[in-house]
Design a protein around this nucleic acid. Structure first.
Lengths: 346, 346
DNA sequence: AGCGTGACGGCAAGCGCTTTCTACGTAGCG
DNA sequence: CGCTACGTAGAAAGCGCTTGCCGTCACGCT
């Protein structure tokens, strides 16, 4: 029923081996023969059997991309960039690779499950994006998995994740970016800053919080623990956390959000409270997602070069670019000062 | 070097056949034997070889999801929902499937390429999302491909795409939604409406435009072709198209955008022009993406149940839900009236 | 003329798994 | 007590492809 290599071979009057070689193009085949084969392929509408060829060649053209939430543009942008760069090294026509995007939902178990599934598929490469969960057991389990993948020839790259000894890492400078953001606010004269943090146990959350605190400390501002509220990375969490912040400290003059999405929620909460931005309260986000500039007022934030980093990760994963020295590169963020921040009322 | 089924079998003192049966769980195996096998699997850290098993069983656990732009939440949300539903029918632990998300960038060629790649992998199912390109040759080519996929046992589902005879389709009521949106504007008293349309040759663009025009016609408003400008589906296109619209007709009182993202760009352009929303000009979007409610003023738009539709498409693709009668279901949109629309100045 | 050489193509041995068919032992049944 | 039936396990035949190895042939060199 389905056309196989052998059928093509028969039709082209050559051996299956020759057909395979024509298709893979890595062995000399006389032009006349090649054309005969190609014609047969065309006439029979032959489609290579991926699994069979992966089995025989012990390689695969699948590339795994792990993301926390594909519906979040933060990950969508990276995934898109990675995917755009995962064609084979030679850039040959046949070098098509398939991106397997795995939505972990931030769950360590699913992360591990997907890694196993990718290992099962003998993926050519795996790129893990986004922050990791700060759990020692899990970190170790992932590390072990990554080692195994690497040992099996799968190239592993981390993009926007803290470095791990098992893989090449492109890390975002969350700490530095957060610090600059808070410094900016302090520079404007703010002294009572609320912090809407991300989920408690994630590295990204911690690093951004650390940057924030470093800036506070440097300015000699006491870090009141009541002014930090943890929540998810979504808009609603930002809304609610901000309400809580306002309850705890109605006189705050700035809200630092874990990211742009959360910042949007924070803005909504502030407005619901009758507070103007930035006249009454300044707000800052993080990431500089596309919508940040369209917020009203436009969001002051830190731009992370998501697309560039993703593209680079993709190229490294495909062996088309040298990994950074030491296997680690720190990707800096850029402070984008916009309308959502201003001097405190007084 | 790598552990195979045979190694596990040797260690558990059974035949490879038995190990396979334990792993697949579709054949009676005595409890004692099963446990012995499972232990061996564990001890050897065995991971099934996906390609080999796909080859032997002539099935695969890959599911393809085609999207136009994974960085766009419109697709991200659908992809996420689809993926969350693609576990196997039984819901067994081993029923894990891998979602292959393919970014076509809206290009017909890439669409076809990906479909071939998926066919090559013998994907279990394929879900195509988003509008199609209105090109007869391409439509036919895609149709042929889909037929072939279906013939090979791949389930094909369209989500948010116009129906095709070759597949089950969940179609968004773009026409109806657009019509309601424009009716709403007309009801408020608007008579000079600008339309910022999407890319010229896409079905979604056409359907939304048709709805808009139907509403105009019903109200006896002449459809001035100068008031429709085509562009991409991104923010920037919305910005520029709106500027053009304003140039052509400075007195317009409402801008209908192809979608929410474009609407954001339109708002920015209007503001850059010194126009207030909705006092001077009303703006409407489409889709009701999460950020629509956080825009200032919040965007009047049509909510498309992206997550629900995606989930349903996923279940249908996995055979866990009955396809709609006739293989076609129309998914309605819901008008969400918010702050970005109001009565025209006079 | 003789033979090395290189270009091309075929043979056949797998790759690691699934599954049909068969075999065996035991339990149930008349 | 012999026979069938059932539950369980193994043998072995592929699944469709890649690739190492070898043969063939034509050429060009000495």
């Amino acid at each position: 029923m389905t056309v196989t290599l052998a059928d093509v071979a028969a039709r082209a009057q050559v051996s299956p081996a020759t057909v395979s070689r024509v298709l893979n193009g890595n062995y000399p085949v006389a032009t006349a023969t090649r054309e005969r084969v190609l014609r047969a392929v065309d006439e029979l509408d032959y489609v290579l059997n991926g699994p069979a060829s992966a089995l025989a060649a012990a390689t695969s053209d699948l590339v795994g991309i792990l993301v926390n939430d594909i519906a979040d543009p933060f990950f969508g942008i990276m995934a898109s960039a990675i995917q755009s760069e995962i064609r084979g090294p030679g850039g040959r026509a046949g070098g098509e690779r398939l991106a397997v995007v795995c939505n972990t939902g931030g769950s360590p178990e699913r992360e591990l499950t997907y890694l196993t599934l990718l290992q099962r598929q003998r993926a050519a490469a795996v790129v893990l994006t986004g922050g990791a969960v700060e759990d020692c057991a899990h970190k170790e389990a992932v590390g072990a998995k990554l080692s195994k993948l690497a040992a099996a020839g799968t190239r592993v790259v981390l993009c926007g994740r803290p470095p791990a000894p098992e893989a090449i890492a492109l890390t975002f400078d969350n700490r530095g970016g957060a610090q600059r953001l808070t410094e900016h606010l302090i520079g404007l004269g703010h002294r009572r800053l609320g912090y809407v943090a991300g989920p408690e146990e994630r590295t990204t959350t911690r690093h951004r919080l650390e940057g924030h605190r470093a800036a506070l400390a440097a300015a000699g501002i006491e870090d009141d623990p009541r002014l930090t509220v943890h929540g998810g990375y979504d808009r609603r969490a930002g809304y609610e956390a901000t309400l809580e912040l306002l309850r705890r400290e109605p006189s705050l003059t700035a809200v630092v959000a874990a990211n742009d999405t959360v910042a949007l929620g924070a803005c909504a909460a502030l407005r619901a409270f009758g507070l103007r931005i930035p006249e009454d309260v300044s707000v800052v986000g993080f990431d500089d997602l596309p919508f940040a500039i369209d917020a009203v007022p436009a969001l002051t934030t830190v731009r992370l070069p998501l697309a560039e980093a993703g593209a680079r990760a993709g190229r490294i994963a495909m062996g088309r670019e040298e990994p950074p020295p030491g296997g680690i590169a720190m990707v800096p963020g850029e402070l984008m000062v916009r309308g959502s921040t201003g001097a405190p009322r007084d």
